[in-house]
Design a binder for these strands. Structure first.
Length: 263
DNA sequence: ACATTGACCTGAGAGC
DNA sequence: TGCTCTCAGGTCAATG
């Protein structure tokens, strides 16, 4: 779930639910999801504060406190946020829980503990420290820079797209969707692609996440020509009705249409 | 210096 | 039912 579009949806969710409310208590239910700072320190910085603004870079979500600290959330493969009031609505695998003055809570949920929470004073230096590349949807990130980043890459196009140190935000699922929309085979090497291929990949890299965000990152709401709702073996290509095939690209499962994305 | 693989963590679903 | 195996949208360290 948590690639760029999902994290952007979480960001807006936090913005629309939890902003400006006094944080009475931060309950950490799994201490190992707090990284870089002690749980005590994190709690002491957050309690008594409010979330003032939010930001996002790639798959990282930032929430600014009114003391100018930033909480950083990473959602791993399974994370999400849940805002609720009744104890019975608390999701399983809640790892941290913000209790607000009005009785509402915001849960940071991870099934697998591959995500984390940390603290930073400066989001830009955090991004730099993580070695993250430009956010895929950054307005100033244009075709020329895209070509420059990929030129010289010896890897496959899918690895290049999901390499967070080049471009931040694209993961396994959306890489498949982008390559499907661009009609490029997921096993293609960057060096084999024509300029025209790269232009289509670039355009899809901009359009797909934008559209996914509009659809709340929910495959059921996505346009009929999207692969995502059909992303399973035996699924049907929305363009040519061929059978969707599964493949393995650098250790990860991928799905594609052999006819629309010939290799 | 780069690219790919395995490990990390936990649960769901398939097959026996 | 219960066991084992494989897989899952993340990154990072260790390999090639």
């Amino acid at each position: 779930m948590p690639e760029l579009p999902d994290v952007e949806v979480f960001r807006r969710y936090l913005e629309n639910t939890a902003l400006d409310q006094p944080i009475e208590k931060l309950e950490v239910l799994a201490e190992d999801v707090v990284e870089g700072v002690s749980v005590e320190h994190l709690r002491s910085r957050a309690e008594g504060r409010r979330f003032r603004s939010t930001d996002r870079h790639g798959k990282y979500l930032f929430a600014e406190l009114d003391n100018r600290d930033w909480l950083v959330f990473h959602f791993g493969m399974t994370g999400y946020l849940a805002y609720f009031k009744e104890e019975t609505d608390k999701p399983g695998h809640t790892r941290a829980l913000f209790h607000f003055a009005g009785g509402y809570r915001l849960a940071f949920v991870l099934q697998r503990k591959l995500g984390m929470i940390t603290l930073t004073e400066d989001t830009e230096s955090f991004v730099k420290g993580q070695g993250l590349g430009v956010d895929a949807l950054d307005k100033s990130f244009g075709l020329d820079e895209f070509k420059r980043l990929l030129r010289g890459a010896k890897s496959g196009i899918k690895s290049a797209l999901t390499n967070q140190s080049h471009i931040a935000g694209i993961g396994n699922i959306y890489a498949d969707e982008i390559l499907f929309q661009a009609r490029v085979n997921p096993k293609a090497l960057v060096g084999q692609l024509t300029d025209h291929d790269l232009e289509r990949v670039f355009q899809a890299m901009k359009e797909v996440p934008e559209t996914a965000i509009e659809c709340q990152a929910d495959p059921a709401r996505m346009p009929g020509h999207y692969l995502l709702p059909q992303r399973e073996e035996g699924g049907t290509c929305p363009r040519c009705q061929s059978e969707i095939k599964r493949t393995r690209v650098s250790g990860r499962g991928g799905y594609f249409c052999p006819r629309c994305q010939p290799g």
